[in-house]
Design a protein around this nucleic acid. Structure first.
Lengths: 213, 213
DNA sequence: CAGTTATCTTACTCATGGGTAACATCGTGG
DNA sequence: CCACGATGTTACCCATGAGTAAGATAACTG
């Protein structure tokens, strides 16, 4: 079985397959990041070598450096890729004219889907420990911003009566923690699809947060 | 500043300090495991070298091998050390004659304290990725057992009416996830003490789980 | 106090893997 | 169709860190 056959068998097309060498930098860079995300999730950041990632794409290690500065950067890009979905969910929530609880639901759904995606593991694990000061500061800033916005939605909900009285800080931590944890156990092969998991978790928290009549 | 002064300044006495070499294998082994747990939590498993751990104790690397088989084993022992607290909480819950919700509270309190302890990070992160098949299987078994017992308490609670109707599996996942997540952000320097955090999280979930009147 | 054992150190080995240099090759625009 | 820039490759360097071997030294034991 060739490398190409193996990669394809895993269900992940590589832009390097198919005879002709093509010039499509953006597409290839994307493929590199996705391959890295999958490998990191599967085996962990430190147990994944750049050779592994390159092999999964049917390419050699130095090629990766043509698309990415270094290994750290790769992890950071995986983080950013996952972030997009969350940003979109916040936008959607802002556009909707629902009450706090409904807006929170929209955000949490996007959040849960992002965490269950191939980038989820990287988003959750990309932290101080493996990154230099600059990158780790950027990540902390982004995560802090998300936390802040979730708290704001919770407070809006308690203000408009759609969420029961609660400590916004603890509530946000608890919900985000529970959702983040999904990245630790969810695999694509799982019985439950990502959307299913998201809905159930959200259902659980919504029931818990709805005010007592 | 000597190594001893540094270690002491960090608030962690080492059995190797204090002139005379003493024979106290159990105590020293314990110190090794605690030092490892702190270092892993601080910098991560892969970013911590055995030299680091040894230095924190004022000792050289080969000495560690006198107390522990290898690095994996060290991580595994950290996991087990943290487990003790959880086991005790389950025992206490069994002895108590409260309803499901009250028993769950006892367990969750012990669980949260264990996660917030110095071993919490290791408990949460000790997984397949960094351990060989045998150890990883043992850890998965222990974690599965905990999950099973938490679900049982939830079901008991819904049966006796102390917990609202809910999917026990999702509920257990959500609660355990939220508590596990504490290990990712809690540090001893934190404004909130561990017991405080535990109580607030439990309060949050209890309010959410209490049945509607 | 002498021999024995537990404990610890110095001084290594060796595999791994991130990163780079220099060269080969493909595609495309003039 | 050819020269030049965009892609990739082979072959390397080198720091790090897990683990070991063999010897030193301190604490017990008789």
């Amino acid at each position: 079985m060739t490398q190409q056959q193996r990669t394809v068998a895993a269900g992940h097309a590589s832009p390097w397959h198919g005879g002709r060498r093509r010039r499509d930098r953006a597409l290839k860079r994307d493929a590199v990041i996705r391959a890295a995300a999958r490998a990191f999730r599967e085996r962990g950041y430190h147990n994944t070598s750049l050779d592994d990632i390159a092999a999964a794409l049917g390419v050699t290690k130095p090629t990766l450096y043509y698309y990415v500065r270094n290994k750290q950067d790769l992890l950071f890009e995986c983080f950013q890729a996952g972030l997009a979905g969350i940003g979109a969910a916040f936008d959607e929530a802002r556009r909707s004219h629902g009450n706090g609880r409904e807006r929170l639901r929209i955000v949490l759904r996007g959040y849960a889907l992002a965490i269950a995606s191939e980038f989820g593991w990287c988003m959750v694990r990309a932290e101080d420990q493996d990154l230099d000061a600059a990158m780790s500061a950027r990540i902390r800033a982004r995560k802090g911003e998300i936390d802040r916005q979730i708290r704001a939605l919770i407070q809006q909900g308690t203000a408009d009566g759609s969420i029961r009285d609660c400590d916004a800080k603890i509530t946000a931590f608890a919900i985000a923690g529970a959702l983040n944890w999904i990245a630790h156990w969810h695999r694509e092969s799982e019985a439950l699809a990502a959307a299913d998991i998201a809905d159930r978790f959200i259902g659980f928290f919504e029931d818990g947060l709805r005010p007592r009549r």
